[in-house]
């Protein structure tokens, strides 16, 4: 890419017409003027601050303060019970250095990355897109049945879903073993990661399907027709017509499902992080350290590390989105 690093990178006018929605109403001309005097709505600085203040307060109370508080807690040896619960002591950065040098943490981080990559980025995206692609050619009735079924997996409460999956994968009387004739296979013990990856794909594909569904609907039909007249096959159509049109959606989708999957806790209901920590993705690992083992200070340190990883992931994606637009 040969983008010139210039002030226009930050200029919202650079996003010209990329967003057909609401923002488009502030026409190009008007916006150019707005950038100049910095007051598009004509509210004046103080009234504008008054409008933003409630939102900033909520952000401060529920996002910024907890994050700082977590940072502080991570510097103590605070525990759920015992002496260190009554009088936590300041231990400096010990919790952070311990975490980073702890094989259990690194193991958990690797598991999380694998979990995110296979279940969200690969699994949910591809399956969600495939479903959306197939659905657009189905008759409306069949299509709504398909969408309902996929949506159900998404909206049923996690505890209920977990129970269904335990019944499906049970070693002795599980449905899957009955179907496959693999009596006695302990799926959750022999293939624990694979099990929760498949579970998460099943559980979360609906979001990608919906997002890609509306993305595909926004591809101008004339482009499909042109492609068909030019004799393009499915692959060529996908590559040359669909992909350029929905690239932004792909990024947004990947960003959201990456963050969600990174923080997901539902697999705990199925494997509880076992066997032997083999499905202990970060959320579950922190829960175990902080609440089962009672090391709240250490849990807070781990939480902060997790927050930072999230912020890094988010900023990378946001940067990509911005670059694409300019």
């Amino acid at each position: 890419m040969t983008t010139v690093p210039s002030p226009t990178d930050l200029d919202p006018a650079g996003a010209r017409g990329a967003d057909p929605g609401g923002a488009g109403r502030g026409t190009g001309r008007g916006r150019g003027a707005a950038v100049d005097d910095g007051d598009a709505a004509g509210l004046g600085r103080w009234r504008a601050a008054g409008f933003v203040a409630p939102a900033m307060l909520v952000v401060a109370v529920f996002l910024v303060f907890p994050a700082i508080w977590t940072l502080y807690l991570g510097l103590t040896n605070w525990r759920l019970t015992g002496l260190a619960a009554a009088e936590p002591e300041f231990v400096g950065t010990e919790n952070y250095t311990d975490a980073l040098s702890d094989p259990a943490f690194r193991n958990s981080l690797m598991l999380t990355l694998a979990f995110v990559f296979f279940s969200a980025i690969v699994g949910q995206s591809i399956l969600g897109f495939a479903l959306a692609w197939v659905a657009r050619r189905l008759r409306p009735a069949v299509r709504s049945v398909l969408e309902t079924v996929v949506l159900l997996a998404w909206i049923i409460p996690a505890s209920v879903v977990a129970f269904l999956w335990l019944a499906l994968l049970d070693r002795r009387e599980g449905t899957l073993n009955a179907l496959l004739g693999t009596d006695g296979t302990a799926w959750l013990l022999e293939y624990p990661m694979q099990s929760i990856i498949v579970f998460n794909i099943w559980n979360g594909t609906a979001f990608s399907m919906l997002l890609f569904g509306s993305a595909l609907a926004s591809v101008p039909p004339s482009q499909f027709e042109t492609a068909r007249m030019a004799g393009a096959g499915t692959f060529a159509t996908l590559r040359d017509v669909v992909l350029p049109n929905i690239r932004g959606h792909i990024l947004t989708n990947t960003l959201l499902i990456t963050l969600w999957t990174f923080n997901v806790f539902a697999p705990y209901l199925i494997t509880a992080g076992g066997p032997q920590g083999r499905t202990e993705i970060l959320g579950i690992y922190i829960y175990r350290v902080a609440l089962r083992d009672g090391a709240l200070g250490q849990g807070a340190a781990l939480s902060l590390i997790m927050i930072i990883i999230n912020l890094i992931v988010a900023s990378v994606y946001l940067r990509l989105l911005r670059e694409r637009r300019s």
Binding site: F62, F65, W69, L259, G283, I307, A314
Partner: peptide, 30 residues
Amino acid sequence: MRLNTGLGGTAGLLAAALVLAACGSDDDGG
């Protein structure tokens, strides 16, 4: 708008941190 959704994704995590934080703010464990 895009930025907001990004923050929204992180909010869940921070909310989890809040639970820990809220637990820590006690001074009445008397």
